[in-house]
Design a protein around this nucleic acid. Structure first.
Lengths: 259, 259
DNA sequence: ATTATGCGTGCAATTTCGTGCAAAGTCAAG
DNA sequence: CTTGACTTTGCACGAAATTGCACGCATAAT
């Protein structure tokens, strides 16, 4: 049995049983526990499972995961969110992506805002129920458990009836040549479709997303109209952003504010 | 069972029951109380629960409060939920209504269940993201801010493509002559439509809903196939339910369980 | 006050973990 | 075909984690 094959099997069994016990699996496959442990360590490093004493468990599931992710770079994301919220005007129809950055945006929208927000994230929809003058439209579809947004043809179909003014997109990678990217194919399709149904697409990218590329490309940078990013600590701002401005994208730099 | 898995189980059980009794759990899991106590100590150190003499309670006073508040009617609703969850079989397609009663149902579905759950409640959709083998389909539409479910023509349209085996309906009134009712017109339409797209409709009604009628009628009692209610304290059970059984509805009475 | 139950610590037995290391296997260039 | 770099695997050994038990103390109940 090939190593990669074995790792695949581990993931399948993990999905099926909800757990892996190193010793059991070693006996079952006629391998030393060391080998299994090595596999588990590797897979854990790639984030495909969660290593625990005695074996492994599925990679932290959605909600626990999103709570953990929420705290990553929360300050810089909140700064982005505040800047983005100022770009929305009364009466507009806004598409709001799923993800932690846009969740911050939803939370910091002024309570007085009168607008229609269309989203495919149930989390964001629930959050916006607190805003009395915002009409919330939820795009249905198959729920992606990792990113907690709806995807699939049903979602695309529901979207087809909608034409919005703004779309705030979250991504996991922004790269001058590789374009905008994310880690999930279905999501990539969805984001592309959302962008096609809005007059303007604005990408919100916190510091760690800049200059990196994820597995699935959404679209080239040239197709968006604005990029909202954090101001860098060092003085390299101008150099870092000129790449994007030269592609015709308006770059909004946000100073991290003190909390 | 892996240690981490056990800790996870403790947290889940804490959320479901609102309390943990060390001794009971130790017996139940065939472990020494020492081990359980150690777990509780660890989890308390992480702030995930509050250690008390004899066991543990939910962590923050806020959530404890929510649980206390929910527990007023929660015991009976949870009993309903447990009974309802047993009616779902692997491979089925289930429509789940919004509301607290059905949220309880979502929470107590076994993690091993393999089924498709269709819902128009974003809250329930997010909750079910934790169930690895449940495919979650969210019905989109305009979000009703009060009841936190989607309604409107978009929701009806999305629903039109779906045909389910079971529909678990929540209502605010069950009355022999006035039928099933709820407090919101859009919701009434939606529930009626959901019922039309399932082979069987089962209504979950906690004690205080029986014999009362709300503003908007959903449908007559005769159109549903089952009614899940709490067993009454007094001996009036037979009399109270005979009205419904004579209308051709299977009544499932649930004993409130002891915590 | 007294009794019973639960708590925490220390301890020992067992299991699991990680690392270093060597043997066996793989692959490609020469 | 051979050589050499690299990967994979199993083993050894010390470190760390887990668990059950015993003992003395704290807390709750009667």
């Amino acid at each position: 049995m090939l190593t990669q094959q074995r790792r695949q099997l581990i993931l399948e069994r993990l999905e099926q049983d909800g757990q892996i016990v190193a010793k059991t699996l070693a006996t079952h496959l006629n391998l030393s526990e060391d080998t299994i442990r090595r596999d588990l360590r590797e897979l854990a490093k790639e984030g495909l499972l969660q290593r625990v004493h005695g074996g492994a468990l599925p990679a932290s599931t959605a909600t626990a995961d999103i709570h953990a992710r929420q705290n990553i770079a929360a300050d810089s994301k909140q700064a982005l969110a505040r800047a983005a919220s100022k770009m929305i005007q009364n009466g507009q129809i806004v598409l709001l992506d799923g993800g932690t950055t846009t969740l911050h945006l939803a939370k910091c929208l002024p309570k007085t805002l009168q607008a229609t927000v269309v989203t495919h994230s149930p989390t964001i929809a629930v959050e916006l129920a607190n805003h009395p003058h915002v009409e919330v439209v939820l795009i249905g579809g198959k729920l992606d458990k990792h990113s907690l947004v709806t995807v699939g043809t049903a979602a695309l179909e529901a979207l087809s009836h909608i034409r919005a003014d703004l779309y705030f997109m979250g991504v996991t990678g922004v790269h001058p040549e590789a374009g905008l990217s994310t880690g999930n194919l279905e999501e990539a399709y969805m984001k592309r479709a959302l962008s096609n149904h809005a007059a303007e697409t604005l990408v919100m990218a916190s510091e760690e997303k800049l200059g990196v590329a994820s597995a699935y490309m959404i679209m080239p940078i040239t197709e968006i109209s604005g990029l909202i990013v954090n101001a860098l600590d060092n003085g390299a701002d101008a150099a870092a952003t000129s790449v994007y401005t030269s592609l015709g994208v308006t770059v909004t730099q946000v100073e991290a504010s003190q909390n």
